[in-house]
Design a protein around this nucleic acid. Sequence first.
DNA 1: CCCAATTTGTTCGTATGTATC
DNA 2: AGATACATACGAACAAATTGG
Lengths: 257, 257
Amino acid sequence: MPPVTTPESVERLSRPQQVAEAIKSWVMANGWGPGHRLPSELDLIGRFGMAKGTIREAIRILEAQGLVKSRTGPGGGVFVHQVSEARATALLGNYFYFQHLTIDDIYQIREALEPELAANLAGQLSETQLAALEDVMTCYSEPARTPEEEREQHIASLRFHALLAEMSGNPLLRFLIRFTANMLADITVSRRLYSQPNRELWSSGLDYQARLVAALRAGDGEAARAILTDHMQNAHRLMKLQETVLTQRFLPEGQII
Amino acid sequence: MPPVTTPESVERLSRPQQVAEAIKSWVMANGWGPGHRLPSELDLIGRFGMAKGTIREAIRILEAQGLVKSRTGPGGGVFVHQVSEARATALLGNYFYFQHLTIDDIYQIREALEPELAANLAGQLSETQLAALEDVMTCYSEPARTPEEEREQHIASLRFHALLAEMSGNPLLRFLIRFTANMLADITVSRRLYSQPNRELWSSGLDYQARLVAALRAGDGEAARAILTDHMQNAHRLMKLQETVLTQRFLPEGQII
DNA sequence: CCCAATTTGTTCGTATGTATC
DNA sequence: AGATACATACGAACAAATTGG
């Protein structure tokens, strides 16, 4: 009888990684939620029969994934922690560091998802929410004068989409829309992809968004979808003018829109 | 004059985290790619003026994010590493552990993205690629007899989509489609969400996919889009029958479709 | 305000494991 | 097979942060 084969696809895990996985599934199995305190370092050292350094490295692995947080002092310890959107964004951003994402790639997703979001939200928003959207829009009611204003307006328009996403009841849709917006914002900032020629063109975004809010308020889902489809295609075309290959960078976490 | 305020939103980073961030931006600034060797532990200890344990924890953090890998022995060391799709999937999956994703949530995304993918691929695939797709389809040319076969067929059908995604030139689209398929596969496996009633209904997926491959071969993008839209809505409806709130779990990494 | 207890955070010295030559 | 160069692991000590008396 052949021995229990370990497929080579399953890499040998270092001890801290093993411990991290063990703790992970332990938390899972017991259904411990955010805020639950794990055993102390000393306790874990005893349970796993390993040195302090090893245990600490394991905890660092979990912490890097955003799954736990640790505090010092009495009543301190290691606590189960809900992965933040900022961390998830940063971690996923790392994946695309070496993948050559283009403006086209990102807009292909946005063109598919944003109209879906708009249709989804029509007639579902409170007047407070609609007012919040209109509030962001005022940031670019005036045409930009300087490149700096230009940049701010572009970022603000991305914030509009982020706010819209936040109102969605679908966490996955919400995350993806904000993630793609973040990627774009990152490009515009890091590559200075906001130059003179498009000055009036961006301001046309204001018109789209005003019409969108109207459609959302009226509860006309198909109109909202059509407007955002149009908006996305236009924005795509504009960004395309300054097409560049995206040299995405590691995201130092925290800088989310 | 007030002191330079540190906004509380910017949390104080522990030393290993600082080191990890420093190494990250160091790699970035120098444009080092996968395979590049970082200085040895001992070297890093010297550069940062910190103890071995601290440096090791920093490296663990980067390793947990999938950004580096370390090897022992002569010629060993810490190497820049391209984040794998499996790791990115696992890390993002962690984020959705506490978010209550439903079947509807996931299918809302699939219904938006999969047709887009199909339209994108029409007329772009080689005969070899088309044959590979047809090959996967043979896995469920026979109606399932047992629940076990049923499950396998469902997984195989998800694999079909994963294979399709792999052929896309858009890394973001590719990742998202495979990620959503993985989430679904995870549900079906963990919640045993493949039960008797749908036996013949799943087999109707075969028909969809056969027509899809035909459209792809013919280069008819709009037909492909329509077929997949239909297919998604149907699959959604079927899964909905066994609707459950998704109790996603931590993904132990590596189990990708 | 300070002191003491608790818990994580950091350091150093040493020893072991592993891959290359 | 043995030497070398590296990561990996251990253990004991000390430092820093937080809480409560």
